[in-house]
């Protein structure tokens, strides 16, 4: 299982702030495909994926127990 967190505009799209899903030993790219099927349009949101609080590359592998966040374009300051 991995934990997924959704923020700001992405949370509006998913309708939930977080969820746990069965997903392991697959890449960030695989997660994008999974997410875009479940939440159509999420991929076009310009969001980035962070794994365990660090921005991840498409080829990075997600392991069971990881905390993954969808980070839409930030607007702090």
């Amino acid at each position: 299982m991995i934990e997924l967190h959704y923020f700001a505009g992405i949370r509006v799209l998913t309708g939930i702030p977080k969820e746990s899903v069965n997903f392991s030993n697959q890449t960030v790219e695989d997660l994008w495909k999974w997410a875009d099927e479940k939440y159509p349009g999420i991929r076009n949101s310009s969001a980035r994926i962070a794994v365990n609080e660090e921005y991840a590359l498409p080829s990075d592998v997600i392991e069971s127990g990881d905390v993954v966040a969808f980070i839409p374009p930030v607007s702090g300051g």
Partner: peptide, 18 residues
């Protein structure tokens, strides 16, 4: 990873939301 939502008289929107 910080986001702001602007709330106006006639609506609101997450800024940075593309």
């Amino acid at each position: 990873p910080i986001w702001k939502k602007e709330i106006w008289e006639d609506g609101e929107e997450w800024i940075g939301d593309q």
